[in-house]
Design a protein around this nucleic acid. Structure first.
Lengths: 159, 159
DNA sequence: ATTATTTTGTTGACGAGGAAACAAAATAAT
DNA sequence: ATTATTTTGTTTCCTCGTCAACAAAATAAT
């Protein structure tokens, strides 16, 4: 296995591990809330005028899934929807008071995770940080270009 | 947002993107096979005496899910199960001839992905590779220790 | 201005995966 | 040797997310 594969698979494995662990911790602290719900709350709390489409793009999920998820959160009284006078189509979301509480608990948990992993990052030099960030940036742009190609290809199938 | 968060979220985003893109490509080339099925085939092709439990641990999935997945693959004639004379409990899997074909197609696709992303890695120096690998390694061990703590905690609840 | 296309969100049928209860074999404890 | 515990795999029920069909609003094309 060459180093490229090692890096990719290493990160894949690391990521699966982290998702699994944090999800466990999360559903332990925020009993009654699924991690997907919490992610949704996090996004709505952090962004301005989030709608179904923006949430879906951010999570790489379908609009349908987000539509159902937000409906459920509304039913639970965690978020509420609103519209703008100039647009009768788009529907935005904001946190309710109860939602803000969940949001805060999540933030604390987030800090806990950072605290937990502090030791790992303490060993990382500024240069290493920058090198990793530039790697991520480059790779991400590269994939964006590939995704763009893909969507062009798919469109051309129907021409 | 500090650099720790940037790194984590950057990789998370990069990863979601890559998974989404590769999954699309995969299900395009290997029509009729889901990406989870292909992952399963990949693992069975690469490891010796894989069983339900090993597959589940590797994919961070439940035994139940793998049990169903393998049953389906057997039905499709892609894998077959076998046992060892000294153990009547564990059930192992191997690829059938048809399964080997899928495996090979997957390998080629894998090479295609590497080829596609070659340009990104070409810019990475040996030192950067090693630094990222050691970061992954350190972090992964750290999380293993945390996961271990978690399972100890859960056990102590019932004592 | 009218029509065509695109964007945005919703719904229902379906499949994938998790949780829990279970059975059978293997291992540990006595 | 017998009993208790653990490991391994399966099945049933349920939730979550996808897909496809759809409706309504917004935008583009004519």
């Amino acid at each position: 296995m060459n180093k490229e594969e090692q890096v990719i698979m290493g990160f894949r494995d690391l990521f699966n591990k982290m998702v699994w662990l944090n999800k466990s911790k999360m559903e332990d602290s925020l009993k009654g809330y699924k991690s997907s719900e919490v992610h949704c709350i996090e996004y709505i709390g952090r962004n301005v005028d989030p709608n179904v489409t923006k949430l879906a793009e951010s999570f790489y999920m379908t609009n349908g899934a987000i539509s159902k998820l937000t409906k459920k959160l509304i039913k639970k009284g965690i978020i509420e929807s609103y519209q703008k006078p100039e647009n009768k189509k788009e529907i935005y979301f904001r946190l309710t008071e109860q939602g803000k509480i969940i949001y805060e608990i999540h933030e604390e948990l987030h800090n806990e995770f950072q605290e937990r992993d502090k030791a790992v990052f303490a060993q990382v030099t500024e240069e290493q940080f920058d090198s990793m960030l530039s790697f991520v940036e480059t790779y991400s742009r590269h994939l964006d270009a590939e995704i763009k190609k893909l969507s062009v290809d798919n469109k051309s199938e129907f021409e």
